[in-house]
Nucleic acid binder design. Sequence first.
DNA 1: CGCAAAAATTTTAAGTATGAAATTTTAGGC
DNA 2: GCCTAAAATTTCATACTTAAAATTTTTGCG
Lengths: 157, 157
Amino acid sequence: MSRTELTPSKQRLRLWLKLLRLTRGVEADLRERLRVEYGATLPRFDVMAALFRADEARADHGLTMTELSRALMVSNGNVTGIIERLVEDGFVQRRPDETDRRTTFVQLTEAGKTAFQGMAQAHEGWVNDLLSPLAPAEVDHLIEVLDAHRAARTSSE
Amino acid sequence: MSRTELTPSKQRLRLWLKLLRLTRGVEADLRERLRVEYGATLPRFDVMAALFRADEARADHGLTMTELSRALMVSNGNVTGIIERLVEDGFVQRRPDETDRRTTFVQLTEAGKTAFQGMAQAHEGWVNDLLSPLAPAEVDHLIEVLDAHRAARTSSE
DNA sequence: CGCAAAAATTTTAAGTATGAAATTTTAGGC
DNA sequence: GCCTAAAATTTCATACTTAAAATTTTTGCG
């Protein structure tokens, strides 16, 4: 019945390329809108999102640089630069750990929280639009597939 | 029945974040392996793959810079830099268009083709491993979903 | 205690990435 | 046949990204 007769390996490669195309397209769109409407960038937004979530979970001292780096899956040196610019803009503040002078806590300022909340609402709408061809049932199914994939990967490590 | 009661918009956002996590994870893995086993980078590999495909399709003159930029969904200025380094390495050669002096054709050298073929085979194996938790039927289904999504997006433009 | 290994972060060098401006060349209308 | 608009590319400034080296501080063991 199928039009093409490909090995599982080749099919997975095809899927991977299509997945990459989708995410690159969506990311390009989101980046463009963040830039035009908020003068922001995607990495900045991602960092602020992580800090906002942390603040909601436990409104104490923010995240350490290492926690941020791991949460976003980017290198530690990378986080340093992004935080530096966010601090310059007044959206983020650093705070030293009293008991361990190696670590630095990082958290959103009030201005940072306010700025993020505006962007986050717009961001959710954009993502919804960009993925709107996917029906809610399809979305739920895909989430399950991704969760199962993630579980399989982490257990095999 | 469902544990959480989220709006379609929030569900799509969740899906997007999971999708991003998957692709970033896979990309990080592929980048690491390309670096360790071939001393190559992902952008270089992507460019070479596009040129290799073009050469298979019509073995004449390669691709123009603009075609490359569009195929990979990266900025034109970006392609200039990557090609520059590939030319230095002897994997790619530029050739001027005789009839239109604005455009430059770019194609793999023999060394480039050979180098790419080795990497491509390994790359397919890595992708297969990384996506192995997805059963072939699931892979086919996902490909259909992505194709439908892509069709819906391009038609609405 | 003393000191080597580990941990958290920053720095560095090179590559990737963008958007905008600049350059060169071509095409089309008058 | 000019001259402006469009097209293809490069250059530029800035930001992001990585891996590796360097720095600072803490921990744990003999």
